[in-house]
C-alpha cells in the first residue's frame, strides 16, 4: 500500500475541483436569478406607474 498518499491527493484534487466548480456555478446562478427577479420587479413597477 505504498504511495497511497498520491492516490488520495488525486482524489482530493479531482473531486474537490469538480464539486468546487459545481458549487461556484450554482451560487453564481442563484445570484443571477436574484438580479433577474429584481429587474423584472422593477420593470413591472415602472409599467404600473406609466
Amino acid at each position: 500500500m505504498d504511495n497511497l498518499g498520491y492516490l488520495f491527493a488525486v482524489n482530493v484534487f479531482v473531486w474537490g475541483g469538480i464539486f468546487g466548480y459545481v458549487f461556484y456555478l450554482i451560487r453564481r446562478s442563484h445570484s443571477l436569478k436574484k438580479d433577474l427577479d429584481l429587474l423584472k420587479e422593477t420593470l413591472k413597477k415602472d409599467a404600473d406607474h406609466e
Binding site: I18, Y21, V22, L25, I26, R28, S29, L32, K33, D35, L36, L39, K40, L43
Partner: peptide, 18 residues
C-alpha cells in the same frame, strides 16, 4: 457542467437585454 454553465450565460444575456 456544460448545462449549468450554458444556463448561467443565458441568464447573463437576459439581464443585459433587460
Amino acid at each position: 457542467l456544460m448545462s449549468l454553465r450554458v444556463q448561467l450565460e443565458r441568464m447573463k444575456d437576459e439581464i443585459d437585454r433587460i
